[in-house]
């Protein structure tokens, strides 16, 4: 497996890529992408997600659903790096001749499903997991949902169903950055105790630091150990806008674009983090 240091470098690279995407296109959601950066790096580069870049629809692939579709852009540099799409596509993010758009959808190689409307990814993934069980395939579905998605009733409809169905091939990361667009979640409508909610719905629930690669890896290893019966919820406490000081934990930066001075400052901070 890739070393933790290598994965950390990957995470720094991915944040810089995501930041430059919003600078170039003046569109996108850097803070939401940054809060789940280590999770996607661990999945793709930590040896957990079994993908097939040459045949993205290989029926035995593991599935990753970025249910918080506004952060779909965090996958694009990875999909280019791993050869799902031709080199140069990240530079064309949201451009007329590019294939990467604001929100992900399955016309993009390596993207499983359309997301962006919150509360769909978990249900879609659960459909895939049912097929996996009934067709006796060994793939897993990983879902990254935002804490904001825990406001959607559909999330809990499926949470109840997946636990009842005993889907041990389903792993959900809850990106607990604590922010929605207008305010912090606990000021909008209280979500806590969030981990206990998942537990009460019958999920094996872990609480980790979303920016600690060792903690993410330990959680994924447990998920893959075969010791857990049923679906797993990993509530990952994260910092929205991680890596750019003025954006960190500031709901107002959800989709705000930085000015020239702010861009310079962010570039300096994101470069330093790599060391």
């Amino acid at each position: 497996m890739t070393s933790i240091n290598e994965l950390k470098k990957r995470a720094s690279w991915l944040r810089r890529e995501a930041f430059e995407m919003i600078v170039r296109s003046k569109k996108g959601h850097f803070p939401s992408s940054s809060s789940c950066t280590e999770i996607v790096v661990a999945l793709y580069y930590g040896g957990f997600l079994r993908y097939d870049a040459k045949n993205p629809k290989n029926p035995d692939r593991d599935r990753l659903f970025i249910s918080k579709g506004h952060a779909g852009m965090v996958l694009y540099p990875i999909l280019e790096d791993l050869g799902f799409v031709p080199k140069g596509e990240v530079l064309k993010f949201t451009k007329a001749d590019g294939i990467f758009r604001f929100y992900p959808d399955p016309t993009i190689p390596g993207i499983e499903a359309i997301t962006g409307s919150l509360g769909h990814g978990i249900g879609l993934a659960t459909g895939h997991c049912l097929v996996g069980k009934r067709d006796k395939r060994s793939f897993r579905s990983y879902v990254i949902i935002s804490d904001g998605e825990c406001y959607e009733g559909s999330t809990w409809e499926t949470a109840m169903f997946a636990a009842h169905a005993g889907l041990d091939n389903l792993v959900v990361f809850v990106d607990r950055n604590g922010c929605c667009i207008m305010d912090h979640t606990e000021n909008c409508v209280r979500l806590e105790p969030l981990a206990e909610k998942w537990k009460a719905f019958g999920w094996h629930t872990l609480s980790i630091d979303a920016h600690s690669l060792p903690e993410i890896i330990a959680a994924l290893e447990l998920a893959n150990s075969g010791k857990i019966k049923g679906p797993i919820a990993i509530v990952a406490k994260s910092i929205k806008g991680k890596g750019v000081s003025y954006m960190e934990n500031q709901p107002s930066w959800h989709n705000k674009m930085p000015n020239d001075e702010e861009i310079s400052k962010a570039r300096q901070e994101l470069a330093v983090e790599a060391v």
Binding site: G123, L124, T126, G127, H128, M160
Partner: peptide, 16 residues
């Protein structure tokens, strides 16, 4: 009794 769940599940199955 979860029509939203039913429809997302259906889509997931149909994708396979």
């Amino acid at each position: 009794i979860s029509e939203q769940n039913v429809m997302d599940l259906a889509a997931g199955l149909a994708q396979n």
